[in-house]
Structure formats: structure tokens, C-alpha cells
Design a protein around this nucleic acid. Sequence first.
DNA 1: GCTACACACTTGCTTTTTGCAAGTCACTAG
DNA 2: CTAGTGACTTGCAAAAAGCAAGTGTGTAGC
Lengths: 119, 119
Amino acid sequence: MRETDFRSGCPIATTLDVLGDKWTLVIVRDMLNGKAKFAEFLGSPEGVPTNILAARLKRMVETGLAKKTAYQERPKRFAYELTPKGRDLIPVVHAMCGWAKSHYSECWTPPVAFMDLRP
Amino acid sequence: MRETDFRSGCPIATTLDVLGDKWTLVIVRDMLNGKAKFAEFLGSPEGVPTNILAARLKRMVETGLAKKTAYQERPKRFAYELTPKGRDLIPVVHAMCGWAKSHYSECWTPPVAFMDLRP
DNA sequence: GCTACACACTTGCTTTTTGCAAGTCACTAG
DNA sequence: CTAGTGACTTGCAAAAAGCAAGTGTGTAGC
């Protein structure tokens, strides 16, 4: 995503242009919980389709939220992890957790380790 | 949206199921800034299409983020405003503002009044 | 060698959502 | 009787999402 693609200079609109879809923050959550491999993300209960996951990981690398590194050669396998820019989304996901917990009583209480995360 | 439509009980996924698109939080931002009428939302620089705006306002009323009231009869005209549940998104939009300001230096600094908002 | 299996994707196709332009409906003003 | 405003709705093309199946590269077992 280039800056010229942003709808406006508004920080909220800019944030939504980068990660305003149904999957990106779910993947960020998984990464914050230590998941790193393609198959690990697929294992999450939301059930992201493989093509969507591949597209999101690609875009997250392009926008600098995550980085991709080979954790082994032959066969080449990759791990994805958040960059500092990606980790800086922690306050955003925490705020969302707080909101959902307040208004959707049936939703889960995140693990303490997750809520204790700091950028 | 019914609870059975949620992808999982995760609070982040739940939040994204309710407002995980490119427009809803832009409209929330406008409402926090005092906008209330259909034409006022259309005036924002992001340029939401009229059919999308109508659909989002409808869904925001259905999910309890906003309420719609007639501010005059004949011709009937409506005003939209956030419910307490909608105002509780303030920490989410503030967190997004902070993130965008940190990583996209060209984006605007929100007005002090906006950043001083509390649920 | 052959089969089976794992991981990380990619491809093809259908369905859904988005976005744009234009039109509608209920009025008010001149 | 025409023009204008506000709040939408409709039609249609383009883009994105979702599903199932397939591909490429390797290891393990027989």
C-alpha cells in the first residue's frame, strides 16, 4: 500500500486502510500469542481460508507489520513474526478486547499473558 | 448480526465481526465529532458512497452502536448518534490514532477535543 | 522405486461485497 | 410549475471473499 492510496490523512482512516478487514488483526493476535507458521494460523478457530491467509501475510509483510524468515532450508519453511510496528498494535487489540468483554458477555476472557503484553 | 454469526468467542474476532470493515469506525469518528445527518457523513473527506453509508448506518443501529431519531417531521429527517455502546469505542479509535501517528508521520493530528473524549 | 505424508502455498470458480452513477420520494421556496 | 434539498434506493460492473482442489518440495517407511 502506497501513501497515495490512503483515503485521507485521518489517522483512523489510515489505520483502517492498512488493517481494516476481518482477518488482519486476528492474525496479529495469533502472532502475539506466539504463532508463526502458516499451518498454525490455519489452526485458529475462526478458520481463515488458505488463500486469504497467504494474501494477508503477504500484505502484512509489504506494509511492515510482519517479517518473514526461513526457519529451515530444504524444504524451505517460513516463520512470520511481528515487527515493532506490528507490536505497536497491542493497545488497539487490547482496546478491542475491553470493548467486546463489556458488550458481549459470552466472549472469552483472554489469557493474562496476552493482556499483560506491552509494545 | 446474531451471536451465532460470530466466527469465534474471541473478543478481537467478535469486535471485527461487528465493525471490521473500512467504513464503520470512520462513521463512529464523525459521530464523535458531532456529525449526525446523512449529508454530514457524506461530506467527510474519505467519500463514502451513499449506498454503503445507508447500509452501515442501518447495521450500526441493528448492532446497537447508534440510534436513529427523527429531528423533524414533514419532511421527515433523521439524526444518528452513538449509543453508550458506540461511545465505548473511544479507546479503540484513540489507540488507532496513536498507532497511525507513530507510523505514518504525514497523517493529521486530531483536534484536542477529540483526543480528550471519554466514554 | 513407490507410496504416504507434511508444509506452504496456488489456482479455478462461485458468491458476496463494494463502489459508482443515476434515480426516487417527500417535501419547501419562488 | 420549476428548482432545490435531504435521505435514501436501484442497477450494474468491478473487486474481494470463500471454498475445494491441486501443486511443489521435501522426508519417512517399505
